[in-house]
Amino acid sequence: MPRRKAGTLLPIELSILDSAIYMRVRGAPYFHGFMIAKEIKERENARLLTAHGTLYKALDRMEKSGLLTSEWEDPVAAANEGRPRRRFYSVTAAGEAALVRARAGPELAAIEPKRRLATQ
């Protein structure tokens, strides 16, 4: 895992949160891997979809750190449609807060941990 300051987001994490929030506003609160890869590609005018390894490693890491939560689709529903079942992710409150901090810039990102320490 790349070395980075606690509370900061990697570019891929920022892209995922950004795209996920955008999709939520448009009425899609849940997303699966390919869906977010496609959204990121379109939003960032990228030539290619995010690499499998990069995307799923980031999703796994973000879920472990509480920025995302996930739920597997009912296997029967997937089987009825003749496709693999999807893992649906959604952004948590912590994920939204992390995105707000990241958007606000390094000043707020640096203040936030101090504020949290002060309230503990």
Binding site: M1, L49, A51, H52, G53, T54, Y56, K57, D60
Partner: peptide
């Protein structure tokens, strides 16, 4: 081609994810 590129570009992340997991 896009699938191949996605696969190859993700190999380093797959390896580091595997090591961490």
């Amino acid at each position: 081609i896009e699938i191949l590129v996605r696969w190859l570009a993700g190999v380093p992340s797959d390896i580091t994810w595997r090591l961490e997991t």
